[in-house]
Design a protein around this nucleic acid. Structure first.
Lengths: 202, 202
DNA sequence: TCATGTGAAGCACTTCACAGCA
DNA sequence: TGCTGTGAAGTGCTTCACATGA
């Protein structure tokens, strides 16, 4: 299931380049997995291709969207409009992935009330009302580490069901709330490790 | 091995809160793995703890640093000083993880020549000389998707051995070059999927 | 006694190989 | 013939349970 997003992205790119049909071999090469893996992965969720031909690109994308729960764009709340928050606001890939940042919030008076990249920024006090008005389940946390936990608690209390946390602190949330950690440090450390391993081989 | 960075982060936080010794049970709870898992993971790389007591926090951090190849801070090149690039420049977690952005580059004349968050921004033409002067192996690619591939090729030609790519495009690099993909869209899609799965359960 | 390090068992994931359909 | 979908074999990862050492 962790690979479904990568399949979807590759299919999207194929669609953009005018491709209508693709075989498991071609798509698998694109995302660097084996063809069997790809077929097995898909078979968990149903049957998608036609034997002897391959997969209809457009059809498979929309079937994946169904599985991933992004047939309709899902609204997302952005919490913290600092450097990282700004970067997230301006990223089209988030839109292309089936999501839309529909509201932002921040504590800084210089941000509150402004409309940034088409998105209104609210104060923390206003946020519960916003969450009540639009049904938002997902929040992206781009706030400093020292306020991350209390902010998370506040959001959960006001109806947020899933958090994507960009601060390097491991948050505590009660189960029933989804927490996903994004940490650039981890990525770099992984890279450093494999780089050394490669060099030792030669 | 993918879990080592999370162990290190947890140990760092323990150290900050004045903890000197920790058992596999406590540390495992912190990062949400089983104690056996943690011990087995560590045992791949040697023997670290003392039976009956636990692990010396400070010692284990530095042993992990050794394994991960970050005893000394590793220099990193930032490519693209847009919103995301700025966010990365201003993140302490990258420093805390054992890395340091020592140079940046960009095509925009408004960026080139400036010093941003203590880091000088070079033009693409100047970059090979910079890479030759300081030995940098790792680059973070925060450029628009349409120039990502050619920029990557250029960097590899000039000595970069590992790329962390933030654009949603899957880059082609010859083997021998390490490529790590960071995609916020994937994270959100994963969250959306598990959120739906949770709701169906109840 | 308490907690680590580790072979052995158990489980999950990946690859193989082929039946079945266009 | 070509490619999908899938049981079966193979591989790797996780957990268990205990011997060892402080």
């Amino acid at each position: 299931m962790n690979r479904l997003p990568t399949y979807r992205r590759a299919l999207e790119n194929l669609l953009a380049s005018g491709r209508a049909v693709v075989s498991s071999h071609e798509l698998a090469a694109e995302v660097e997995v084996t063809p069997s893996q790809l077929r097995k992965d898909l078979s968990c969720f149903g049957t998608f291709g036609t034997a002897g031909v391959g997969y209809d690109v457009r059809d498979l994308v929309s079937r994946l969207d169904e599985i991933l729960g992004i047939c309709k764009k899902r609204p997302v709340l952005l919490v913290g409009v600092g450097n990282l928050g700004l970067a997230l606001l301006n990223r089209r890939p988030i839109q292309r992935s089936g999501f839309e940042i529909v509201a932002a919030c921040d504590t800084s008076p210089s941000k509150v009330g402004r409309v940034i990249a088409g998105v209104r920024c609210y104060s923390l006090e206003e946020t519960p009302a916003v969450l009540a008005a639009i049904k938002i389940s997902i929040a992206m946390l781009a706030v400093p580490p020292d306020t991350a936990q209390e902010t998370a608690d506040f959001l959960v209390k006001n109806g947020i069901r899933a958090l994507v946390n960009f601060s390097p602190l491991r948050l505590r949330v009660d189960k029933g709330v989804l927490l996903e950690q994004v940490d650039f440090g981890y990525t770099l450390q992984k890279v450093a490790y494999y780089l050394d391993a490669m060099e030792e081989q030669q």
